[in-house]
């Protein structure tokens, strides 16, 4: 009995050690970030930018995660920014958007080059989670920094973001999101 218990403990311990070791040696974290979105209609084009997204890539399991506080998006018109937070995104209720997924292609992070990748995972905006496959470009430069560039569309209805009829013609139903991240090994 004691032996079994010990064995179990060893297993568990080695398992957690493994996890710790992996995460210590193969974690990339974002050092620069730019998230832009763009809404295009014949009447008005609206864009906003945030530089406050935090993101990480775990190379051992190719896990990618990102968190952004909605209120860090800035518009040219401060009034519009308030509407965005208050009426559409309900930022007091849903303060952040998140993504967590896995890179589908096997990437050798030690090999500089440019890789077309797809990431499948859970995109949570406005408190509504959607499973998405997002494609992008991962560039590993000789100094082993990672550059990630991706552009994808977010449909407002997918995330239960309602646009009042009054401004329906001014806000696009599909919002284009462009993300640029630079990662450095931790």
């Amino acid at each position: 009995m004691v032996k079994h218990l010990l064995l179990s403990l060893v297993f568990v311990f080695s398992g957690s050690l493994y996890v710790v070791a992996q995460s210590n040696t193969s974690m990339y974290k974002s050092i620069k970030s730019s998230v832009q979105f763009f809404s295009e209609t014949p009447i008005e084009n609206i864009d906003a930018i945030s530089k406050s997204m935090v993101s990480a890539i775990n190379t051992s399991n190719q896990n990618v995660a990102a968190v952004i506080a909605i209120k860090t998006f800035h518009f040219n018109n401060a009034f519009m920014e308030e509407h965005f937070n208050e009426k559409y995104m309900e930022s007091d209720k849903y303060p952040k958007a998140t993504f967590s997924g896995l890179i589908n292609e096997k990437i050798n992070f030690k090999e500089p080059g440019s890789y077309k990748i797809t990431v499948t995972g859970k995109l949570n905006i406005h408190g509504v989670e959607k499973v998405r496959t997002i494609s992008g470009t991962l560039t590993i430069d000789p100094s082993m920094k990672l550059n990630l560039h991706t552009t994808f569309d977010v449909k407002l209805v997918d995330h239960h973001i309602e646009v009042p009829q009054l401004v329906m013609q001014k806000v696009a139903e599909v919002i284009r999101v462009t993300i640029d991240e630079v990662y450095e090994m931790q």
């Binding site: 179990s8 297993f11 568990v12 080695s14 398992g15 957690s16 493994y18 996890v19 992996q22 995460s23 935090v54 993101s55 990480a56 775990n58 399991n61 896990n63 990618v64 995660a65 990102a66 968190v67 506080a69 209120k71 308030e82 937070n85 208050e86 930022s91 007091d92 303060p95 952040k96 998140t98 993504f99 967590s100």
Partner: peptide, 29 residues
């Protein structure tokens, strides 16, 4: 146990990120 730990580690990347980056002062708008 071992697998649950590993699984926990994978899912936890997002949670770790969130924990490491607590939201800054969130003013009522």
């Amino acid at each position: 146990l071992l697998f649950s730990l590993k699984g926990w580690a994978q899912d936890d990347l997002l949670r770790t990120l969130e924990k490491e980056n607590p939201p800054t002062t969130d003013h009522t708008i």
